[in-house]
Design a protein around this nucleic acid. Structure first.
Lengths: 136, 136
DNA sequence: TATTGTTATACTCTATAACTATA
DNA sequence: TATAGTTATAGAGTATAACAATA
């Protein structure tokens, strides 16, 4: 059995993908973590900043500065939760939704090119299996 | 199309895998990069340290301290290349081979458990597709 | 007493430049 | 002059602890 470790395979592919995403993101003025937060918020607003941090696997203390920047750019808004005044809800603005959609379109195009050599069935199988593994 | 970005999927799975590997590696007294270097050297010795750094995607300046530690532990040996006395070849010792084999066995077992819910055919398809994507 | 958001601090990791010895 | 290995230094990224406001 001369195969590579699964972790080594995934790490190499992930690194390639990140290298390809970096210039796309920087062209839109976003860091990787900023895009990660926007993507999460595009699915659903966050009830607390801590929940958002947990959802994207980021640290709550580092999230502060990240959200500060996104808010300054008008891409998100923080609003105090009337029910619990310690907490702040976080949601995308219209500009934030537009920015996220534009970046995601670029990233999907890049991914499609990378997966170009796969057949449609292979692509479906890959994405399906990865989704299952990620969900657990 | 409500799927997640490929990069986001891969990053999540890779992080899960790394979290699962960390305790295994530390039980064997190895860092992630140390294991990465041992894995590469188990495939073939390195003609130069720079070649090894390139092969595992690490920085040549950071590789120094890593190899210092591995050499001190008796897992690798550096030998000056008689043909070019600037260069050092790097290869595993017997102890290095044994250590690598032991760690890899643990990691493979963990991976198999993680992939446990997949059928044999799905596993083959996944590893095959990932290998192709990693190779390019 | 516990939790949310926040700040400050220390620590680790990574990138850059420069040195030496060879070629 | 260019390259392999090395060292030193600066910068970015990350983790830990502590604080104020609220529950």
């Amino acid at each position: 059995m001369e195969r590579e470790d699964l972790g080594a395979l995934l790490a190499r592919i992930t690194r390639r993908l990140i290298d390809a995403e970096r210039p796309l993101l920087s062209r839109h003025g976003l860091s990787m973590w900023a895009y990660s937060a926007l993507s999460r918020l595009a699915q659903q607003p966050a009830a607390t900043q801590q929940a958002l941090a947990g959802a994207i696997g980021y640290d709550k203390t580092r999230l502060i500065a990240l959200l500060d920047g996104l808010e300054e750019d008008g891409l998100i808004v923080r609003e105090p939760d009337p029910a619990d005044r310690r907490a702040h809800t976080v949601r995308l603005t219209e500009a934030g939704e537009a920015r996220h959609a534009a970046v995601q379109a670029d990233i999907r195009a890049m991914e499609d090119q990378l997966l170009g050599e796969l057949t449609a069935a292979e692509k479906r199988a890959l994405l399906g299996t990865l989704s299952r593994l990620a969900r657990e």
